[in-house]
């Protein structure tokens, strides 16, 4: 499985369609759509330059919110949306603190 960043995916979008990929990126400020009944989460990862829309079927992880780093696994469909079967959020661990400058 290819492990890519968001800009890398954008560059090779056509070749990657339908391939299983793993992508690391930040959740953008676009609205997050969380459908509780169907356990379907839609959001966008990337930054101002490159973005990938993601649809994930499953439980929204506790750490998931705008601005966190996530890793998603899945395939990009014909509609250009990454249908993810795995969504991992960074940092349910104690081993790092978010470095917030001067509280």
């Amino acid at each position: 499985m290819y492990f890519l960043t968001v800009p890398e995916v954008q560059q090779k979008l056509i070749a990657l369609k339908g391939e299983p990929i793993r992508v690391a990126g930040k959740v953008t400020e676009d609205p997050i759509d969380w459908d509780v009944r169907n356990l379907s989460l839609a959001f966008v990862i990337g930054d101002a330059q490159s973005r990938i829309p993601v649809r994930y079927k499953g439980v929204k992880p506790d750490m998931f919110q705008t601005g966190v780093d996530v890793i998603v696994e899945g395939r990009i469909g014909q509609d250009g949306v990454l249908a993810a079967s795995v969504l991992m959020t960074s940092c349910p661990s104690k081993y790092q603190e978010e470095k917030s400058p001067a509280l």
């Binding site: 492990f3 890793i71 960074s90 349910p92 081993y95 790092q96």
Partner: peptide
Amino acid sequence: IASVHAFAQ
């Protein structure tokens, strides 16, 4: 290595 346990440093 990227991990669920994101280590920042």
